[in-house]
Design a protein around this nucleic acid. Structure first.
Lengths: 255, 255
DNA sequence: CGGATGATTCGGTGCTCACCGAAATGTTAT
DNA sequence: ATAACATTTCGGTGAGCACCGAATCATCCG
């Protein structure tokens, strides 16, 4: 009797998420460095990234082609120039989570300037669209301590927290995209502690920039706390000086 | 005048998260398959994984060495056999998030059995310690619709949701580890939709197993909904038949 | 219209690494 | 003890790929 062969036309293929392909994009040191650089949330040109990653422009082109094709980066062409940025917030969060899981690597520090740069990064930096580093962790801690965030029953903005945001002038931080949780944590790779991300984290960051509590350096992820910022963070959240002055920031813990 | 050189002993090295090293672990198809298999939350022997991944035992050994050394897997030796499992919930969540971001890959389906297997996986499966697949998404949707979860102001368990859990006999699902949010979403790679994870998701899964609403097949991630389960999910959440019968589950969307 | 600039294409090179098989190690069973 | 079994070690092979430089293309500027 004739049996129909299963491998016929109809359902002979299926689709599986290709985890290895995505990971392969990040498995190269240069591409990983590019992605980490773009975690500042900004838009870079191919040439800038080439210089940052210390590879030839031709090499950078190949990397960018892969990253864009893989959906990690979004690109925009203007004339002879190629601008790239991270594809979106989910990409940024996944990257930062991954970095939090990753082992540490010892890298040589070649100059005093570089040491200062690192110290500043550890103190306060952007994580795509919110605040990370010692300052970010201190903010999350202070908000929890003051009952603005509740860590004990899920991670939620409390009623007091919502009031506090309103008092700051953040109009309810409307849930524009339902896909993105309002309050979310992000594992900080400098201290391996949680800091505030999600829509609330992003709103807080924007607000701090608008009020000039923070200033972002160009072409880096470094944030600087202004005098006004220190006053505000002290008044609003009672942040200690350790969180407000880079010079008081300790080096990161051992890996 | 003598200037002290900076590259002296003191602070000449710093530590950076080695994203590329971590990603390299997942960048291999065999290792990725191993990790995906372990997403069932179970403990596998080296030999089982070798057969599953269709590589020589010696090759499997090398992969497991790397994955364990990289902190993704935890191992336990008993006599002549080596048991491995995912290192922890964060690892599982990051993996599933990554899979949700990954592109699809077309794979051949060689037999009717394999096609049925895939269909079953798409219908209901474990994601480490909670429920994923069409059933998992349907549960999250139904809970949101019934006001047990609120998606509009962060993702929180509502008061009604807490009551519902208590009525089910889940005693408040105590916040054992503060690091893990109670309610959390996990991007499902089959449907690219959110399902329920976190401590609440895990408690719900355990409860469903205890009450025999679900049965987990050995050595796979497949969950089967029992008759009692269908009754319970209908009564408790009003789940439609599409979510309760694998035969009604549609194939996954195009990548 | 040249000349400078940003990016790309292409060929070639060297290194890394996934894989296997055969032999070895150590453990459980007969 | 001996046999069966699970895993590991090691040497060797082949493929993939990150990298560069030189040439090319496209755009902007004087």
């Amino acid at each position: 009797m004739y049996m129909k062969r299963w491998d016929a036309d109809q359902e002979s293929v299926a689709e599986t998420p290709d985890l290895a392909a995505l990971a392969a994009l990040l498995a190269d040191r240069t591409r990983a460095a590019i992605c980490m650089a773009l975690l500042d949330g900004g838009t870079w040109t191919a040439g800038e990234l080439a210089e940052y990653a210390a590879v030839a422009p031709s090499t950078t082109t190949e990397h960018l082609n892969l990253l864009v094709a893989g959906g990690l980066l979004a690109e925009e062409r203007q004339g002879r120039r190629r601008y790239v940025r991270l594809a979106g917030p989910e990409t940024a969060e996944t990257l930062e989570n991954l970095a939090g899981l990753a082992p540490y690597r010892r890298v040589p520090v070649r100059s005093l300037a570089e040491a200062n740069h690192r110290r500043a990064l550890h103190h306060a930096r952007t994580c795509y669209d919110h605040i990370a580093g010692a300052l970010g962790v201190a903010i999350a801690d202070a908000m929890t301590e003051r009952g603005l965030l509740a860590r004990d029953y899920g991670l939620v903005l409390t009623a007091a927290g919502a009031d506090w945001l309103t008092a700051l002038g953040l109009p309810d931080t409307a849930p524009a995209d339902a896909h993105r949780a309002h309050v979310r944590t992000c594992l900080d790779w400098t201290v391996r502690r949680q800091h505030l991300s999600g829509a609330v984290g992003a709103a807080l960051y924007r607000h701090a920039l608008e009020r000039a509590w923070l200033v972002k350096a160009v072409a880096t992820r470094i944030l600087t706390v202004t005098a006004a910022g220190r006053a505000a963070f002290r008044a609003q959240l009672g942040l200690p000086d350790e969180a407000l002055f880079p010079s008081l920031t300790l080096p990161p813990p051992r890996g």
